[in-house]
């Protein structure tokens, strides 16, 4: 009972401290207005919708499909057939076709063919003594486009919503919004993003194209680029450059919604094809959930000996008239 009276006493005192004068009232109102403004503005500032400038373009692409089911683009790369174009005696044709078709600025390779050691002991840890014999000798080639992750680390870290995953499952970049902070490049676990460090060495021809997030032309300085998975071409029923140019038909481009994929030669049912060949996704343990699947191999269906190393250096579409002030840089210094 004593404690109760104490509480009463305290509550009796309170009104004295909270004696609200008119001035105080005005001050509180001012504070409330400031708080209101902040609470009103911040959520807007902190919830970016992707592609403001290209909303029209992008809307057409998705609205057209909105009455129908949305395509869910994906890719299957059959490594059993990929020999890095060793048998052709050419640079990897997927990379070259992509470079030419997309006017990819010089050091970038939106789809890059990497030569992985079959034994994972080697190559991953560079300082290991190279005189040791790996348990499995030989290499395999791995064409590496953007993996189109469905839990994309790049999308998760972009501060301005300049990169986002479309309803069709493709991660695109709005170069008109990109601020060039390169956080996405640090976040990408597949190293699939490239930056235009200087004025890009592209031809004038690419400058006349109206900008779209789906083909990324014209190329700007100081922003990030990557494989865009060619959704425009796919919607028009054309395979991407990499898939259609592969001499071994190793690259299948498909649609998970229709459960079909094609390499330009045959059409397969994706679900069965993946299961039948125990397909995997690159660095699956990261749970980025890529849309690019691989069928393991080292070019055996193309008749490649895993101990033959190397691909020929790729070329770019830079023989045409190059922009003034274009710079040449390397992927890594």
């Amino acid at each position: 009972m004593e404690s109760h009276s104490d509480i009463d006493q305290v509550s009796d005192d309170k009104p004295k401290n909270w004696d609200i004068s008119r001035r105080k009232m005005i001050k509180m109102l001012g504070g409330a207005t400031a708080a209101g403004l902040a609470v009103g503005y911040l959520p807007k500032a902190l919830r970016a919708e992707p592609v403001a400038e290209n909303a029209a373009d992008f809307q057409v692409a998705t609205d057209a499909e909105s009455s129908e089911r949305l395509r869910q683009w994906m890719m299957i790369i059959d490594l059993r057939r990929c020999d890095g174009c060793q048998s052709q005696g050419t640079p990897p044709q997927c990379t070259e076709a992509c470079n030419m078709g997309h006017f990819v600025p010089k050091p970038m390779q939106w789809i890059e063919v990497y030569e992985h050691e079959l034994s994972r002991d080697v190559g991953e840890i560079a300082p290991l003594d190279s005189s040791t014999t790996p348990p499995i000798e030989g290499t395999k080639f791995m064409p590496t486009p953007c993996m189109q992750c469905q839990n994309a680390p790049c999308v998760n870290v972009c501060p301005v919503g300049a990169t986002w995953t479309t309803p069709e499952g493709i991660t695109l970049i709005d170069q008109n919004r990109c601020i060039g902070c390169r956080m996405c490049m640090a976040a990408c676990p597949y190293e699939r993003r490239s930056f235009t460090w200087g004025e890009p060495p592209t031809s004038h021809a690419a400058d006349f194209v109206e900008h779209s997030v789906e083909h990324q032309l014209p190329i700007q300085k100081g922003v990030v680029y990557k494989c865009d998975f060619c959704p425009e071409m796919a919607r028009a029923g054309r395979l991407p450059f990499c898939a259609s140019s592969c001499p071994q038909n190793a690259i299948y481009y498909g649609d998970l919604e229709e459960d079909l994929a094609s390499n330009g030669d045959e059409v397969v049912r994706v679900s069965e094809f993946l299961a039948e060949h125990s397909a995997f996704r690159h660095k699956e343990e990261l749970r980025t959930r890529p849309r690019v699947y691989y069928i393991d191999g080292h070019g055996e269906l193309a008749g490649r000996d895993p101990k033959t190393h190397g691909t020929m250096p790729v070329r770019w579409n830079i023989d045409l008239d190059i922009k003034d002030g274009a710079k040449n840089w390397e992927r890594s210094s």
């Binding site: 902190l46 919708e49 403001a52 972009c158 501060p159 301005v160 990109c178 902070c181 930056f195």
Partner: peptide, 26 residues
């Protein structure tokens, strides 16, 4: 130093216009 590092410092305002609260950079 952040401005020195940006590819497009003039677009820094985009962080206030199009910020994504999910991003560590924001």
């Amino acid at each position: 130093f952040i401005f020195a590092d940006m590819g497009h410092p003039e677009r820094a305002i985009n962080i206030l216009l199009f910020g994504r609260w999910e991003s560590p950079l924001v």
